[in-house]
Design a protein around this nucleic acid. Structure first.
Lengths: 199, 199
DNA sequence: GTCTTAACTGAACAAGCGTTCAGATCAAGC
DNA sequence: GCTTGATCTGAACGCTTGTTCAGTTAAGAC
């Protein structure tokens, strides 16, 4: 086990993932070549195969890594509070988390079709898990009489789409801060589910 | 001008567009080869170039065609009624129109990055035009005191994302009819903009 | 029946693809 | 200072890519 220090492997590995994430988001999985990724890392294409089995596995690993991080981050945030507070936290969390990782979010929605059926099923299950936490909140709030949500499944789809949509238009140099955006979306959410107290 | 009847050109042309639309939506622009498209049409790859200058122009033409159709269809629908009626019509129109053309909608959101800057600017302008009609409705309703929409721009983004999201989950064999989906989304919309009369 | 020409074939082009691998490189271990 | 082995190079592999074009086909015009 020579060269455990001074080795480049602990640098090259992450750099491959970063370069691939950026390039896949910018040009699409199919349009990016292994040579382009290698070139961004400053290495020959063959060297990539010290770190990944093949191109498909690289994509799958990026997507799985993103979903794992997302679920862990939400679980760290989702502990205390009543139903309304939980929902507000979800709304703000989702917007912030997505805005901080535009590339990962982008390929998570765009490149699912480039996964093998096996990999697709895994990633899709993780996303379902995440969306189910929102649906659970809506269902709880409805049953407790705090929300009016006749169709929690459809409302979940609508909310996720609405919140994720922020990534398509928000620019940090623009008119609004992230906080202001969160406030606006939380107001719209509160109205959508007819929660009381428009504070 | 021989063979004006019995010619295949008026058949092959549209079939190329249909095949390309379907394949691009299914696998992505970069992942589909001209030979795949030709094979679907039942023709050799070289024959495609009697109908299109190159692959990029084919994509641009599909997207432009879709946006033209969309704008024309909405203009045919958007004539009479007060502001609330107009908004309701927009919500139902958008959902229905999108559900009827899932492939065109899909590539319109996914393949914009594969356009040359020129083509991108053109398509983007058409989409902006469409979204502006919604923003206009929201602005009118707000000024008339019928809606409460402090930020029409953001609300437009939120609504468009929410409505377009239906395409990602709706299946005609599922639990809900299109009419029921439209009803649910119109209720959510009405609440979001705090329109009166929850009829 | 001949001419014309739109429509298409089939082969070719240079370029690029994902992936493999023998060999060079060089820091760490002893 | 020699050995070890992780890391990377550079060339090669068979294959596919978008696009071109000389030549074949066949239907309408006369």
């Amino acid at each position: 086990m020579a060269r455990t220090q001074g080795s480049h492997s602990d640098i090259t590995g992450p750099r491959i993932r970063e370069a691939a994430l950026r390039l896949f988001a910018r040009h699409g999985f199919a349009a990016v070549s292994m040579r382009q990724i290698a070139s961004e890392v400053g290495v020959q294409a063959g060297a990539l195969y010290n770190y990944i089995p093949d191109k498909q596995a690289l994509l799958a690993s990026l997507l799985r890594g993103h979903m794992d991080d997302l679920l862990a981050a939400w679980q760290a945030e989702a502990t205390t509070g009543d139903t309304t507070e939980k929902l507000e936290r979800f709304v703000r969390f989702h917007i912030r988390y997505n805005l901080e990782r535009p590339d990962a979010i982008f390929i998570s929605y765009m490149e699912l079709r480039n996964l093998t059926p096996e990999n697709f099923a895994q990633i899709e299950a993780l996303r379902k898990t995440y969306e189910s936490t929102l649906e659970g909140i809506l269902r709880d709030g409805h049953e407790a009489g705090r929300f009016d949500v006749p169709d929690p499944a459809v409302t979940t789809y609508a909310l996720i789409a609405m919140l994720t949509g922020v990534n398509t238009w928000y620019r940090s140099a623009g008119r609004l801060t992230v906080d202001e955006v969160c406030d606006i979306y939380w107001t719209m959410t509160r109205r959508m589910i007819a929660a009381s107290s428009e504070a």
